[in-house]
Design a protein around this nucleic acid. Structure first.
Lengths: 203, 203
DNA sequence: AAAATATTTAATCAAATGATTAAATATTTT
DNA sequence: AAAATATTTAATCATTTGATTAAATATTTT
């Protein structure tokens, strides 16, 4: 019990700081976040943050890696699944993305703006590009429409899924209250795959 | 000539600072931008910045108002034009947006991330929501498809136009070099209106 | 040209902020 | 329980950074 107790507390405190850092960084971005904000959010002393993570920068790197995983992890397992059709993938990607984004609406704008702030540091370590580029998913699109660059359809899919969340602060006043916003996103889970199929089959 | 010379220099220096501030703020965001960065970019002394604009915050407000105008100004004149069809508006919005974004690719991510950082301050003063909500454009969409909330199509249009620029740092490695990226965006000027019409007419 | 005004600079201030230190407290091991 | 180790804190440091000041320079007006 003694060993367990210590390990529990250890993990709990470290995890509490990581969790707080994730919240504060995601909400404010690296430059606007204060280590004191994070300490307060975690309910601990400022020195503890440096005791566990050495620096703001180190803590940020850990949070960032986790956030990037969250944002692209939704895609990864689906893209190269040989057992699903293109249609199946469109439905699965859309449903998973919208479900995830309804829980983490500020994730895309955080990751994208931090990549903008530090393209060299972050853009290089993304395995998402290669993953996307050589995926079964993109090959399936290319087979279906050899006349159009398949990445156009990828941009459309990601754009229709992600943009309403990236632009949420601007769109919310147009779209209504939180519940109405949520309902629209739920509708899009059905609609986006239909629209994607339309684009792939006609035009 | 004497009067002109002073006025010229005056405007030139003030404008030089504004221009530098626009560049630095847009590239780094408010929190990561240093007033010394801006002064250096403008080729002037730090004190001059405060002499002309009183504070970083004030300078930022001026830059931000200008950037918001740039981002939404493309839409405004088209949305309520009674002399164009829905199809005509889709083509015009897409062409104008992509042309503008090719010149200012980091504009959307800057504006959206700053609105996230300060929703109360910035979101309220946007007249874009009301403009969009009550536009002829949205009414024309609603007439065409009474079965689907017209804002779905608005989100699709904006998503397909803006997202490739918002996500440029992530997409660039997939899409190729700068020139190839540009060519894809040029293609989208023709493609997006076609796709939008498809979605409006079928499904 | 002299006086008045506007512009620009170097030096400096004060507050914010990331980080450290040394001591206190709690936990685990012996 | 005592010793050893790990955790936590209050106080403090050093740097960064937005802002100011007072003096110098340039420009405009008289």
């Amino acid at each position: 019990m003694a060993k367990v107790k210590k390990a529990e507390l250890d993990l709990s405190t470290e995890e509490k700081i990581k969790e707080a850092a994730s919240i504060v960084f995601t909400k404010k971005g690296y430059g606007n976040a204060r280590t004191r904000d994070i300490a307060e959010e975690a309910g601990i002393n400022l020195a503890l943050l440096n005791y566990y993570f050495r620096s703001k920068e180190k803590l940020f790197q850990i949070v960032m890696a986790d956030r990037i995983d969250k944002l692209f992890g939704v895609l990864a397992p689906i893209l190269n699944d040989a057992s699903t059709t293109l249609e199946g993938k469109l439905e699965k990607i859309t449903e998973n993305y919208i479900d995830m984004l309804l829980e983490h609406p500020d994730l895309p704008i955080f990751v994208l703006s931090e990549i903008r702030n530090n393209p060299d540091q972050l853009s290089n370590r993304l395995q998402a590009p290669k993953l996307l580029k050589e995926s079964v998913f993109v090959k399936q699109i290319a087979e279906r429409r050899s006349d159009i660059n398949p990445f156009h359809f990828l941009m459309n899919l990601l754009g229709m899924n992600l943009f309403p969340f990236v632009a949420k602060p601007v769109l919310q006043p147009i779209l209504g209250n939180e519940e109405q916003y949520r309902q629209l996103m739920e509708q899009r889970k059905k609609l986006i795959p239909v629209w994607m199929k339309l684009m792939l089959d006609h035009g």
